[in-house]
Amino acid sequence: MSEPALLSVRNLELWYAPAVQALRGVNIDLPERQVTALIGPSGCGKSTFLKTLDRMCDLVPGVRVSGSVRYRGKEIYDPCVDVTWLRKQIGMVFQKPTPFPMSIYDNVAYGPRTHGVRDRPRLDAVVERSLRGAAIWDEVKDRLKKSALALSGGQQQRLCIARALAVEPDVLLMDEATSALDPISTSKIEELIAALKQRYTIVIVTHNMQQATRISDKCAFFLAGELIEFGDTTQLFSLPRDKRTEDYITGRFG
């Protein structure tokens, strides 16, 4: 193996209800400090797969998961795993920007406070570092005490990224984080992702094939809950091994 796998998924199956299977036998190794893009038609299970990686799928009543997901060698579905610890390591940014209805500062400080940071100078430092990390510091540094809801959609999404960075995660999951944004905000966030992969392992879901080619190192194609193909993005888009992948990326798919 060329790169060590940070997240290693084996035979992962997920049912939302006894008759609703959303993931079928997924096997994948996500490499460290790279951007992996998940692509596939709507309803193929991309979001579901992402949610299995930080156990946000646990929140859905009646859900059942089988198989194995190892994070740095540790089985995350082991009953003795502390889910709050796991979610601190593996952050998530949602499709719709979801800043809390509180100040910009409090949004970013929320995670560190949750994990026990009370010291004001330390919080100040974390907030600044995270906002800089999410490339939004200059836009908000003069109004940290103002409500986060007054920001534009693109700013809100970068704030959410800053909020996720503030807990110092290892992995960042992003579910169509730019699909609700205008092109300028989108390109800002794409630049941001390129910068963040120096320090974080990033998994993104995207509907936008150009975006996948622009920003991802690896690409995974899902179809009807199955992982059809996984490989280097350049290879997957230029020389797909599977006919269904080819159909999808050339737009010959329903």
């Binding site: 930080d54 946000m56 929140l59 709050t84 610890w85 796991l86 979610r87 601190k88 952050g91 998530m92 949602f94 719709k96 979801t98 809390f100 209805p101 509180m102 929320y110 995670g111 949750t114 994990h115 959410c160 909020r163 996720a164 807990v167």
Partner: peptide, 27 residues
């Protein structure tokens, strides 16, 4: 209260009780 707020809080590693008292109730 929009469930997204709670999901965002849980995704940051907060427990359900922390989420209720620090996000849901203020909202």
């Amino acid at each position: 209260v929009p469930p997204e707020y709670e999901a965002a809080s849980l995704a940051l590693g907060a427990t359900q009780i922390e989420t209720v008292f620090r996000v849901t109730l203020p909202a």
